[in-house]
Amino acid sequence: MNCPATPVEPRIETRDLCVSFAGKPALKEVNLCVYPCERLAIIGPASSGKTTFLRCLNRLNDLTHSFSHAGQVLFDGREIYAPGVDVSDLRRRIGMVYATPMPLPWSIYDNLAYGPKLAGIRNRVMLDERVETSLRSAALWEEVKDRLREPAHNLSGGQQQRMCLARVLALRPEALILDEPCSGLDPISTGKIEDALAELKSRHSIVLVTNNTKQAARSSDRTAFFLMGELIEVGATEQVFTNPVDKRTNDYLIGQFG
């Protein structure tokens, strides 16, 4: 997957995306693009629609019965909510990491091989290779290479979350969406994940939802600010943090909204 020097076509684009749960609006007319080879951070106070936005991108909101939406979500120019879209395939191409590390109650190897197996890969050698490269990308290989058959629950919290990142990478996704992946982790584990993301940027589009504005400033190229279901502003991270256009963004960054 090669990334052109100057991004032109957005990888993911939402047009007037509105979402509501049981009639209560959660997102209002969000227009946002994610380009190839960039890290987009989404910041905003609690229940501002960050996670809802993220879960729209791989259609995970479909699992909530009260979910309904309007507007468009385009992935590589194609509407993902169109009838006939293979949702499984979509979710493989847009890999998601959750807020809490959630290992399935199996071995590390089985956790990583699960996605590729679902995609139809049966060949042992290919599976081994996928497991190893994705663990390397998530900076976990050296720590677990001798204990791949051990239960994933035995890993520490930080290791579990990197394993979850590796589990998603094993799908060879084109985009990565992460929902506050470091919220429960110590600074060292957080640093390792941020380093891994910086590395992965060269091959993936990354959307990082975070509660930690410092993390957004450290490890993103552009930043979007959400408030009460609305996209307030989006721009280059440096610009948003040093010279926000909207007063509300400024208020949030200096700590006005919890």
Binding site: N58, L60, L63, S88, D89, L90, R91, R92, G95, M96, Y98, T100, M102, L104, P105, Y114, G115, L118, A119, C164, R167, V168, L171
Partner: peptide, 20 residues
Amino acid sequence: AYREVSYGVGSTRWQMVTRV
């Protein structure tokens, strides 16, 4: 959460039920 993880890596409902 196991179900969400399974959907997240691209399983169908039936695959999620049988394998997870």
